[in-house]
Design a protein around this nucleic acid. Sequence first.
DNA 1: GACTAAACGAGACGGTACGTCGAGTCTTTGT
DNA 2: ACAAAGACTCGACGTACCGTCTCGTTTAGTC
Lengths: 211, 211, 211, 211
Amino acid sequence: MTCPGDPTERRPTIGRGKKVRDAVLAATLAELADVGYAALTVESVAGRAGVHKTTIYRRWPDRDALVVDAVSEHVRTEVPAPDTGSIDVDLRELARGLVRWMHSPIGKAILSTMVCGEACAPEVEQGRRDFYRLRFAQVAPVIQRAIARGELPPGTIPSEVIKTMAAPIFFRMLVLPEPIDDAVTDRAVETALAAARAGVLRDRSCCPPGE
Amino acid sequence: MTCPGDPTERRPTIGRGKKVRDAVLAATLAELADVGYAALTVESVAGRAGVHKTTIYRRWPDRDALVVDAVSEHVRTEVPAPDTGSIDVDLRELARGLVRWMHSPIGKAILSTMVCGEACAPEVEQGRRDFYRLRFAQVAPVIQRAIARGELPPGTIPSEVIKTMAAPIFFRMLVLPEPIDDAVTDRAVETALAAARAGVLRDRSCCPPGE
Amino acid sequence: MTCPGDPTERRPTIGRGKKVRDAVLAATLAELADVGYAALTVESVAGRAGVHKTTIYRRWPDRDALVVDAVSEHVRTEVPAPDTGSIDVDLRELARGLVRWMHSPIGKAILSTMVCGEACAPEVEQGRRDFYRLRFAQVAPVIQRAIARGELPPGTIPSEVIKTMAAPIFFRMLVLPEPIDDAVTDRAVETALAAARAGVLRDRSCCPPGE
Amino acid sequence: MTCPGDPTERRPTIGRGKKVRDAVLAATLAELADVGYAALTVESVAGRAGVHKTTIYRRWPDRDALVVDAVSEHVRTEVPAPDTGSIDVDLRELARGLVRWMHSPIGKAILSTMVCGEACAPEVEQGRRDFYRLRFAQVAPVIQRAIARGELPPGTIPSEVIKTMAAPIFFRMLVLPEPIDDAVTDRAVETALAAARAGVLRDRSCCPPGE
DNA sequence: GACTAAACGAGACGGTACGTCGAGTCTTTGT
DNA sequence: ACAAAGACTCGACGTACCGTCTCGTTTAGTC
């Protein structure tokens, strides 16, 4: 039956095709983690997945599409949004989780794809935009709860807080490659909180106020 | 320094060789700006420089070395450190300059090289580390003056302020590709200042909080 | 013969199977005429016949068998053996018919299959041997009547006369690709008759010359 | 040296390139003889020639061009034109030579290329036309001498005699695949001579025979 | 001002991966 | 229970670019 509820992919996703698809995507992530995006080879992926190269090309138009798909697949993973009652603790937990993810094989895999100086295929571009949008949405409640509790000023934009917290971590990881220790992580959290509390991260268009 | 006798490069750097070297490096930067690091081909560079491919391989061991060299060349450019007497204004000027640089051809060229998810050649790795170290050093006086003026708390680490200001801009440019407008830039500046004023960016190892 | 019960083919030849079989064979001939034997694709045939590729592979072991079968199908066509009372006229008529056939779609189809520099599958090999044997047998009476009328020497081998007449035509068509006009055709006929009349085409093993 | 006199090919033919070219063409002919035209693989040729696939594609645009070139190369071989003073003997010798050539590896190689039912690439088409034109020109003197000696009627077209002799041999070899023995060969010769002597192979346009 | 050595132009070559096509086999599904 | 539909394996195609090599030719510094 083509029971309603999972029409994300056509029928081939079920049955034998599903097995192949999963094997290939898993192999892609593994390769990504091992050798990175630039050195990823369709033939290696095929070999690792125990599948023929042409089978991959039948399902994905090219290397980029394959990688984007593989990464997107693992994006549906729910990121647990902590709720300890304190924004300091919650945000620190999120930051630590981000750092852990960045250093995990799968995180490295995704990162190596998800960064490139704008000359990327539009496909990849869109893929990563979606990725981050989803991630931010998943953790936004943490900030919203803090606002509700009065820990952060009303009008604070949740995604801005997250971005402000995440930015220094990504920056150190990807731009200046510097090791990321707890001090760095904590500083990122405190920076975001300081900015939020100072009202820097509020929506300025609606509520000019306050001051 | 290019003082005579400098053996960083052999003689060929002078005379005819100089012309070739310059043409190739310029062509490399142009290609970098046009198509990005990943799509850069030695043959295109050779063609653009009006030089034969083998000539390039005679001087640089491989593609990466060429790119690193081309980029390093343009790193010595002095970044003017503004000094208006107000850290707000100075920092905003630095941020605007950074954004302008990021959108300039040369900036794009360097960025496309300087970012990659860790699977880079060590050569590139070291190159970019040096690049940023130098850049931060160039603008550190701006912060130091602010500390001296009492605008920022003593013990504030200049490079941390710069990084905190730069991180959200790079993050938006490279990770989530989002357009960067003045609001974003200003917010980055204010975030860095808020954090600095809150004492988040002080050196914690030496001067235990106390305050 | 197509008498009922003929077990050369299994049941599927009747009923629904018959339709499929006919459609596929017709499509095969059409493809053969259009693109030739070498470029013939099972998928194209399937598409043209409105049938799935695997359906073809179920019925025919491989491409060659399909082609041979398709061609054999159209071999049973009776070639009218002219009987004007004059071997000159009769033979010329046969020659013209041969040339017409060669330029017809079906003729081209068969020709493109029926020629290949020996590296053919034995299946094809046997198929074409049978094809020509049958063709020659069909027109042999023309020669036999001429012998009976005394137009050609006794002992003349009918198939040899046909082959001698046909050879230059095939030669020009397949080997040196040259256009075939009436002059060529006539010359082929006259050559065969000259040779036959000179006794070159008699069976030498049985009736030692002498005569 | 670039001494005048051998500008048949550009410079690459000399030096290292010549070795590669020769090796590849030889390997092509060998493959052609072994597996035939249809089954010939660029990779096999490359392997046999001890050369990389891409090297072949650098010099020849595709498989067909390679084969045509390889065959053309071996066409310059002079075919000795016998001159015994008797057209019967000379022609028989030519016929036997043709049959021997057909059964030689190189002959098979060329034949397997040189026959295809018109759906050939124009490149191959032109190549074979040239091939046969040259071959016929090489042996035409044999016929011309016979005409001069009065063995054949004046006005006899040499190439027609050759074709008439060759046609049945090719026909048996390629169309009906039948073994070719001396009887067949002799019959072909006698047929051609009978036709020539009967005046069938004269140029009809110029000398409308007095006979 | 001629001479020698380094560097350049030119082009082929081995090698890796790309993305495509077609043959023929195997599995799932629907009837 | 069997045939249609699809997906899969396999092998070859022709392409692009990498980095290497070997020739001649030009040019730059030296004697």
